[in-house]
């Protein structure tokens, strides 16, 4: 999951980026509305955390422009204004949710997850694919009730594939969703990554190579049938 933070207060933006990165999100930071608009229109983010008051271009203007340019990414508006009128303006301006500064980081996380979930039309934080079970809030993956020892980014890859099974993701698409702008990626880094994830799935008793199928020349996709319980196979 890739997230854009648009916040002019550098220290706050850094803290948010660190916290979200540690939660397994790929995070980009823009320091003002103009930069934010450029990022938002260029890269398919899963969510945008947007500060409302910024010099040059404020959050609401950026949001309006982004929506005009067809960006449907869910937006969490950070505002220092708690007045009802201001919140209404924010929501009417195209934000999907708002959070009043100062906020608890856990609340921000919960709201970002809720935004992602709502955007996917999903009611719960749990995703089940046969014997594989993901908890998006607790950030865990289990096979037959046993915890899979995954790193944040491996989990993010598994989530990406599980949330849209049968969809083929190109290596570029995966890189775009999992890595922020800062990282320079080798062309085979995704392959290495998938290989590691498959080995961990194998160790947990699932056929890794069948579950994450390689589509030659196209990329990878999840095959839910491979995770079905043995009885039904």
């Amino acid at each position: 999951m890739r997230i854009l933070i648009v916040e002019d207060t550098a220290s706050l933006a850094r803290s948010l980026a660190q916290g979200l990165t540690e939660e397994g999100f790929a995070v980009d930071v823009a320091g003002d509305g103009e930069e934010g608009l450029h990022f938002a229109t260029e890269i398919p983010y899963d969510a945008i955390v947007l500060d409302r008051m910024m010099p040059r271009m404020d959050g609401l203007t950026m949001l309006r422009r982004a929506r005009e340019q067809g960006v449907h990414t869910p937006v969490l508006l950070l505002t220092a204004l708690g007045e009802v009128q201001d919140r209404i303006e924010g929501l009417d301006g195209g934000a999907d949710d708002y959070l009043v500064k100062p906020f608890a980081f856990d609340e921000l996380l919960a709201r970002v997850r809720a935004l992602l979930r709502r955007h996917r039309g999903q009611a719960r934080n749990q995703v089940e694919v046969g014997r594989l079970r993901l908890d998006l809030a607790a950030r865990t993956a289990e096979v037959d009730g046993r915890l899979l020892p995954l790193t944040a980014r491996e989990l993010a890859l598994l989530e990406l594939l599980c949330l849209e099974p049968e969809t083929t993701f190109s290596r570029t698409a995966i890189a775009e969703r999992l890595y922020s702008e800062e990282k320079d990626l080798d062309s085979n880094v995704i392959d290495v990554f998938v290989g590691r994830l498959r080995r961990k799935l194998d160790a947990a008793g699932l056929p890794g190579a069948d579950l994450i199928r390689t589509q030659r020349g196209a990329g990878y996709r999840l095959d839910p049938a491979a995770a079905a319980p043995p009885a039904s196979r």
């Binding site: 803290s15 916290g19 008051m53 220092a80 201001d86």
Partner: peptide, 21 residues
């Protein structure tokens, strides 16, 4: 009021977020 509110709340948000993260 909105500017004052922004100016006062932003450092608080920074402190809180930094500490919590």
């Amino acid at each position: 009021v909105s500017r004052a509110s922004h100016s006062l709340r932003t450092p608080a948000a920074t402190i809180l977020t930094r500490a919590e993260v």
